[in-house]
Nucleic acid binder design. Structure first.
Lengths: 194, 194
DNA sequence: GTCTATAGGCAGATAGAC
DNA sequence: GTCTATCTGCCTATAGAC
């Protein structure tokens, strides 16, 4: 039996859950296998059974995070049609992360970029590319239907939204918190007012 | 004699120079006394003579960085009168940091915030406060003389500029580099077009 | 001020019993 | 899958000679 009840999580999943939070709060170089093990009540050796090296754990964390993010974008596309509503929903993803006192996982890793294994570095870049591609699409839609200003190219707008939101999260954790983040996010979106 | 020639730097200063670069590239948790010692050709013990603990080294790094940043803002105030020129010069400070393949020192530390000694955390918050105070002043001047839009409060504008620029640096190091940063910075400033 | 030497702890990682 | 036990290496930091 891999689990003790229908709702129980495997050790691998619980490891990812704890490691994900530690990574988003303290950074990849700011937590250890010992931290995860203590929180789960298992030994470090058990963790190495599921994730032999920390680089592999990191790869798994980015893969799961990117996958969930992509799912969330898919959900937005299904649930909303108005491009402005899509952007509001996009910002809301970030708000919920910050509400948990966390930084965006890939934003955190972007800071530590130069210290990371190559596979992780590439995966982070890919995460940002995918986000920008989605945002570019939404902005282009909004410009086509007139709901968004066409004073900026969709590509430029998506770059500014992505980096603006990541920066607002970064600073808000040290100064101003969620209210400040949401205020900055609103200002960013106003740029696209027609 | 504290130095061997009029232009020679003390070990303490050279330590700060190397540590500063390592911190801006790899983060506070991403370098060690051994890294600095190897680069300077001295022993770790020598470094501990000048900076007994890493927390004290970190305090000194933030203090020097903040002081230089404040000097740069003072120079801008002396050399330019037009608020738009001041903002351009402000962005240029960031561009030069990124040109050296570095992240803003305090932006990097903002990511590692939760792992830092209290004295460092407080100093980072103070750095951001001072930057925002300066920016708020410049925006207010520009609104008064009509060179900047008054569609946003100076406080909101300064928050968005600071976090937007920090975020643009953060992302540009993994995707797009300096050209992308400068493009995003230009877009941010356009928000203040009258 | 800088060195050698070393302490004490924690990091990531592995071997092998159960 | 999880454990005990252990390895090796690096970390911050200190003592004491020069």
């Amino acid at each position: 039996m891999p689990s003790t009840s229908p709702t129980a999580l495997s050790t691998a999943e619980r490891t990812l859950d704890v490691a994900e939070r530690l990574l988003q709060v303290r950074g990849f170089n700011g937590f250890s296998y010992a931290d995860i093990a203590a929180e789960l009540g298992v030994t470090k050796a058990s963790l190495h059974y599921h994730f032999p090296t920390k680089a592999e754990l990191g790869d798994a964390l980015i893969a799961r995070y990117s996958s969930r993010f992509a799912d969330a974008l898919g959900t937005i596309d299904r649930d909303t049609t108005n491009p402005r509503d899509k952007l509001d929903a996009y910002v809301n993803i970030y708000s919920e992360v910050l509400r948990g006192d966390r930084m965006c996982l890939c934003g955190m890793l972007a800071a530590e970029y130069e210290t990371l294994p190559h596979s992780m570095a590439e995966a982070i870049t890919q995460f940002f590319r995918e986000n920008e591609a989605w945002l570019t699409n939404v902005v282009a839609q909004g410009q086509a239907d007139g709901s968004l200003s066409n004073g900026v190219t969709p590509s430029d707008a998506s770059q500014m939204l992505l980096s603006g939101l990541e920066g607002a999260m970064l600073i808000a954790r040290t100064l101003g918190g969620l209210p400040r983040f949401q205020s900055s996010a609103r200002r960013l979106l106003e740029i696209l007012n027609p």
